[in-house]
Amino acid sequence: MIRTIRAEEITKNIKEMCIEANHILSKDMEEVFLQSAEKEKSALGKQILCQLKENLDIAREDMIPICQDTGMAVIFLKIGQDLHIEGSSLADAVNQGVKEGYIEGYLRKSVVEPIERINTKDNTPAVIHYEIVPGDQIDITVAPKGFGSENMSRIFMLKPADGLEGVKESILTAVRDAGPNACPPMVVGVGIGGTFEKCAQMAKHALTRDLNEKPSIPYVRALEEEMLEKINKLGIGPGGLGGTVTVLAVNIETYPTHIAGLPVAINICCHVNRHAHRII
């Protein structure tokens, strides 16, 4: 059976999700935040984490975006193969939602043509990742991505001989270089394997994972825990001003790769790791 939905329904949801994601951090992120303030050993670091908590409260209550950089809208769509979308094209429906959300939600329009730097004035186009899946629903994740941290993200095309140790060193290098620029405490998304673009996409997608969910592959889970500990020993701390909480979470995705390669992408996100999720 083919299910039909109107494109306008997608637009309406995307609009609401852009506004929601920029004002309200997901519950799992907020919980990790609270736990981190207790763990921080630096007095200044603790003070900064408390300010960031207060910032989240003000954002939610007064409807002021958590961060002025309300990001470029990154949207993951899982579209059921038995779903038919009626009306405009899916990309147009999504971009219309972004446009309405950013204009009506008082969000910053940060998108420009890359060389001429002319602002599109409505924060479109979004970066849309499509996946066709079984079923008749559409699963939408809206993840506005700020560029202070995006600029510190890296891809390493490692050699197979570099192995797991090479992966660990790449993650540490990216975080060390990011330092205070990426608004720590950070969330680190990592993609291991695939191709050049696949590992980058996995790193981005990893940032949207609920922090209460753990990876099913034992070595990946162990790697996440080890990297969390190692990064927190770098001393960068909240705001980069020293401390024991540099990272709130390390989320890793893997995919098979070619016999000749070992691509690793590290997508760094600040503590405002925003994502809204809905299934229609």
């Binding site: 960031l52 910032n55 975006p65 958590i66 608004c183 980069g240 503590h271 405002v272």
Partner: peptide, 29 residues
């Protein structure tokens, strides 16, 4: 927020200026 180049730091000293950080990601506050 974030690091400054060697040239900027030298110029801060030369001109007796100061670089402050505000807490990144605390825009509402």
């Amino acid at each position: 927020k974030g690091k400054r180049s060697k040239e900027v730091i030298e110029s801060i000293v030369k001109n007796q200026s100061v670089y402050f950080a505000a807490v990144g990601g605390a825009g509402a506050l």
